[in-house]
Design a protein around this nucleic acid. Structure first.
Lengths: 221, 221
DNA sequence: TGAAGCAGTTATAACTTCTAACGAAAGCGC
DNA sequence: GCGCTTTCGTTAGAAGTTATAACTGCTTCA
């Protein structure tokens, strides 16, 4: 029953075909978005007929969920290796942006419009929270931000809130200022990235990278 | 030929039916997202059969485009009235958040996952740039931010870039610091709002409003 | 070699958007 | 008021989708 690794040639063939299906699915998603993903078109493209794909994926939603899982893994890997090399929020941010620009629809599969009823499986939410850990570990070393007493006063309320509810960070023992910075790393960069990838900056004539770098400069002092 | 206002009873009936179709469409979108919008289901719900709707909307995409247009108008109105009452970035921000929370899918119709090929009509992009004007006018009065020389130095590069490319702001004569603040108002709040509406904060146990207000405090000093 | 499982096929159901052709009703000009 | 024209809503149907059921062959395994 093939306990762990793919051993039998049949399993290898099966894994290879699953991979090819996902490959074609990514192409379609990149071209027309997740909405435009058609199992029939994939099957036809692979030279086999419609329902054959249901041997490999239980449903269209099942395939998409798998792609979302892969997207999360890809992002987590990218962030993890970036965090391993240089422990700086800036390199982390640039790695994130490069990953997003590499395949915008893959980014939107994670951070795009949600389906109202959809609830992500537990393993996916686990990866999601693991992704948050990298900026947390990276934001910590620099210690207190405090570019002025003014800012500290402004952030006191939020930092108290974050210090009391740190389950989102898996009870990470970082100082409140680091918690806040890791969170802002996430929300601010996502704000710019999301708008850029959706094309809301096109026609404005300004460079999103400039805006992005400015936010990064504010995050890592 | 009904030059301007709806005059003839036929035109009134037509306008009313169009409005009812859009009403049902909004309900469906709120329930299942834009992807789950079905013209057939709307027709059945209204007691008439399928193709009848094509008398009122040329296609499904045409209806969605109309809904996007309405969403933009609704947002523009909300921002405009908020800017008219209290000239403060904070009230502008709270109005934006209330509008978004009122109908998340309406927000995502504007700022959600884009369809790769889709190009918004000119009148929509016009409204989009008009929306930017409110935070620009509001961010201006306070003048230079400069909570410290440090921050000013950090922002010099971006502000120079913004000052040189101000066509996105319709050549608005605001000082560079105000340009930057209006832009950050947009990207930072969108970052939090988008993640909140997509449910990325659920399970984290922290209050998005706290984070949102913290960003607002930093934007309007 | 025989038995069992798996891959891929066609057929079919139940959907969807959208076009075409038709009947009926309403409005408009005379 | 009468007739013509426009518009509305209908049914029929084409082409597409997801998904299931049943059947054929091939592979694998004991």
């Amino acid at each position: 029953m093939t306990v762990a690794g793919k051993k039998t040639p049949r399993d290898r063939y099966r894994a290879q075909l699953r991979a090819e299906i996902k490959e074609r699915a990514w192409e379609q998603i990149a071209a027309a978005g997740a909405t435009g993903l058609s199992l029939n078109a994939i099957a036809k493209q692979m030279g086999m007929s419609g329902p054959a794909l249901y041997r490999y994926f239980a449903s269209r939603d099942d395939l998409i969920t798998e792609l979302i899982r892969d997207a999360y893994h890809s992002l987590a890997d990218t962030i993890r290796t970036a965090a391993a090399s240089g422990a700086d929020l800036a390199v982390l941010g640039h790695a994130l942006r490069a990953w997003a620009l590499d395949d915008p629809q893959r980014y939107f599969l994670i951070y795009g419009t949600p389906v109202p009823g959809y609830q992500a499986p537990d393993d996916i939410t686990a990866i999601a929270s693991e992704i948050m850990e990298a900026p947390l570990n990276t934001a910590q070393p620099t210690g207190g931000s405090a570019p002025g007493v003014d800012a500290g006063h402004r952030d006191a309320r939020l930092e108290a809130h974050l210090a009391q509810h740190r389950q989102w960070a898996a009870d990470h023992p970082a100082p409140p200022a680091a918690l806040r910075r890791a969170l802002l790393f996430w929300t601010r960069l996502h704000g710019i990235l999301s708008l850029e990838l959706a094309g809301h900056f096109t026609g404005m004539g300004l460079d999103p990278a400039e805006l992005y770098d400015n936010e990064l400069r504010h995050l890592s002092p």
